[in-house]
Amino acid sequence: MATYDFVFDKLGLKEWCAQNQTETPLSMRELLARSRGDTESSTSIWELPFPSMDALNEACRSFPQSRDLTKGLENGFLSIKDTLSIFLDPLTQPLSWFLDGALHIMQITPWWIMIPLMLVIVLLVTKSWKLVTFVGISIAGLAFIDHYDYAMQTLAIIFVCAFICVLFGVPIGIAMSRSDRMQRYTIPILDMLQTLPPFVYLIPLIFLFSVTESKLYGIAIILYAIVPVIRLTNLGIRLVDKDVIEAADAFGMTKRQKLFRVQIPLALPNIMAGVNQTIMMSLAMVVIASLVSAPGLGVLVLRGIRNLELGVGLVAGLGIVVLAVILDRVTKTSLARINASQKNEAD
């Protein structure tokens, strides 16, 4: 006799319950109870179980158990999976090409072209020789301990993913800033993307795409890292001085002129802060993505964990820290340059 028998008796569902008397697999709790030998269900008020799915199932075999819920979700996903991949596969295919292409370029370009090229780019965006020296020493250091290839793979993945994040994130952010309704619907999605443990969205992706495709980790990284650039673009445009917008209206700007000549330039510091965050988050995700075959320093970290190779894991981990510091300093310095050229009225 189970605790909640009376519920089904009262509702007159006894027959419906009886229909399904075939033995369902035992739950863990039942197994434990049986092994302890106390099949007697307790009637003490102190041990009253919550009327959960499993507890109700005990009283009525036709009532679904909670593991049917997860099972149902899985079956549901599997049944739409094929249709879903028909659409998603070609749509996301370019991502694979981008990633493979970037990885390929990073690998075939010899280091004596790649390193100077990167230093020139750093100099162009930051105009700071100090930073160029720092980047040069860091990369040379990584190369010296034979981590150059891994580091370049990680960088290639980050560049591609961050670029795509900006490509999609900025327009989405602009759309959000223009419509309160769009903002209302988008924010919960962004919140979910940001708080969902990063491992969790690897799971459906593994079902959808084959693990050998690079777009699998590409999508995971983009989903995780696109949030800050969307949020900060939206915020940046909403924070643009209302008086300046009014002046733009009063002098007869079209919406397009207002967007490209006033709103985006003035929101640029915030957008760039979002890009900085996006790059940092893709770096965090690229390590986790090595679980699904993303190449780079993450692979070494994973090896360190799996084989308990302390040195390998630590060195690779520190390599990631070095990359993070480089990317952060470079983006922050170029951001500071933008800020300096457009301080708000100082009166």
């Binding site: 300046v244 009014e246 002046a247 002098f251 006033v262 009225e345």
Partner: peptide, 12 residues
Amino acid sequence: SMVFQKFALLPH
């Protein structure tokens, strides 16, 4: 044309 209390010039 309009002149504003808080000037409303384009800072950039």
